[in-house]
C-alpha cells in the first residue's frame, strides 16, 4: 500500500528509448536504410522511498534498457527521470555529477562472472567506491569494508580474494556490497539472481530483503521469475514490447491478472517446487 506521504525515490515519466540499427552499407553504397527498434515506449512509474517495484516481462521487452537509462548508461530518447525529486539532465554530465548520481542509484547486473574486475581484489573494489564517495581515512575504510562484507554475508577474509576465487553467489554478494558501498537510495537488480543456483538464489533474496529493512533502500527489481518477484516486491509492472501492459500490487497482479499477456506469462512459468496458491503444507519458498 503506497502511503501517499512517502517521498518518491524515483519517478519516471513517459520514458522512450529508440535504438537505431545502422545496417552495413550495401554494395551499391548510398545511404543505408536505418532500422529502428523502440525498446522502451512511454513508460511511467514511480517508486517510493523504501518500497520495491518489480519489472517483469518476456525477453526483449525492454527491462534492461529501462534499468540502463535509470543509471545513466543509456540516454533516453524522450521522457524524464527524477531521482530524489531532482530531474536528470543528459548533457554535460561531468564526473562530479556522475559521482553524485552514484550515491542515488546503483545497479547489480545479472552475470556475476563479468560484473567484477578480475584484476581487483574484493577489498580494493569496495575501497575504490569508499574513497570516491566518502572522506574516510584508511582505518575507517577498512572497518567499513568489513561491515559491508558482513552485511552481504561474506567474511573479512574475502577482502583479499580475487573474483576468480569466489563462487557465483559470492561474487553476486560482492557486487551487492559494491552497490551498497555508495549508500544509494535506489538499488536496481537486473536479473540479479537469475544465473544463480536455486538454493543460493533464496539466500541472496533473503539478503536483499534484510538489506531493505536495514537501510530503507528502494528496489527496482527486474526478473523473469514470478516466484522471486512475489518474494521481493510490493508492486509490479508488466512489460511487453517496451510498453507497460499491467501494473498493481504484486499479490493482486500475480493472483488475479487482468491483462491477457500477464495471464499467459503466469501460465508459462510452472516451476517445480513453486505453488502459486498459498499452500500451508509446503514451505519451500520461505524455509
Amino acid at each position: 500500500m503506497p502511503e501517499p506521504a512517502a517521498p518518491l525515490a524515483v519517478e519516471v515519466r513517459d520514458l522512450v528509448k529508440v535504438f537505431r540499427l545502422r545496417r552495413s552499407p550495401g554494395i551499391g553504397g548510398g545511404r543505408s536504410a536505418a532500422k529502428t527498434i523502440v525498446a522502451v515506449d512511454r513508460v511511467s512509474f514511480s517508486v517510493a522511498q523504501g518500497r520495491s517495484l518489480a519489472v517483469v516481462g518476456e525477453s526483449g521487452s525492454g527491462k534492461t534498457t529501462l534499468a540502463r537509462m535509470a543509471v545513466g548508461l543509456e540516454r533516453p530518447t524522450a521522457g524524464q527521470i527524477a531521482v530524489g525529486g531532482r530531474e536528470r539532465r543528459w548533457k554535460h554530465v561531468g564526473s562530479r555529477e556522475r559521482r553524485r548520481r552514484a550515491r542515488e542509484v546503483q545497479i547489480v547486473f545479472q552475470d556475476p562472472y563479468s560484473s567484477l574486475d578480475p584484476r581487483q581484489t574484493v577489498g580494493r573494489c569496495l575501497d575504490e567506491m569508499l574513497r570516491l564517495h566518502f572522506d574516510m581515512d584508511h582505518a575507517r575504510r577498512t572497518e567499513r569494508i568489513a561491515a559491508l562484507l558482513e552485511q552481504v554475508g561474506l567474511d573479512e577474509r574475502h577482502a583479499a580474494a580475487y573474483p576468480r576465487a569466489l563462487s557465483g553467489g559470492q561474487r553476486q554478494r560482492v557486487a551487492i556490497a559494491r552497490a551498497l558501498a555508495c549508500e544509494p537510495r535506489v538499488l536496481i537488480c537486473d536479473e540479479a539472481v537469475a544465473s544463480l543456483d536455486v538454493s543460493i538464489q533464496a539466500q541472496v533474496l533473503n539478503l536483499l530483503s534484510d538489506i531493505r529493512e536495514e537501510t530503507a533502500v528502494s528496489y527496482l527489481f527486474i526478473s523473469h521469475d514470478l516466484a522471486v518477484v512475489r518474494q521481493v516486491s510490493d508492486e509490479i509492472l508488466v512489460m511487453k514490447d517496451g510498453r507497460v501492459v499491467e501494473r498493481g500490487q504484486t499479490d493482486r497482479v500475480l493472483d488475479d491478472p487482468a491483462d491477457p499477456y500477464t495471464q499467459r506469462l503466469l501460465a508459462a512459468i510452472p516451476r517445480p517446487g513453486w505453488h502459486p496458491v498459498a499452500d500451508p503444507e509446503s514451505d519451500l519458498v520461505t524455509s
Binding site: 556522475r98 553524485r100 552514484a102 542509484v105 567484477l116 574486475d117 578480475p118
Partner: peptide, 26 residues
C-alpha cells in the same frame, strides 16, 4: 562492454581511472 566497466561508470569512477585502472590492467 562488460558489466564490470559499466559498474565502475555507475559507481562514479572518473573516466580516466576506468581506463587506466580497470581497462589497461585487463
Amino acid at each position: 562492454n562488460l558489466p564490470y566497466i559499466s559498474a565502475c561508470y555507475v559507481g562514479g569512477v572518473p573516466a580516466r581511472s576506468i581506463c587506466s585502472r580497470h581497462l589497461l590492467p585487463n
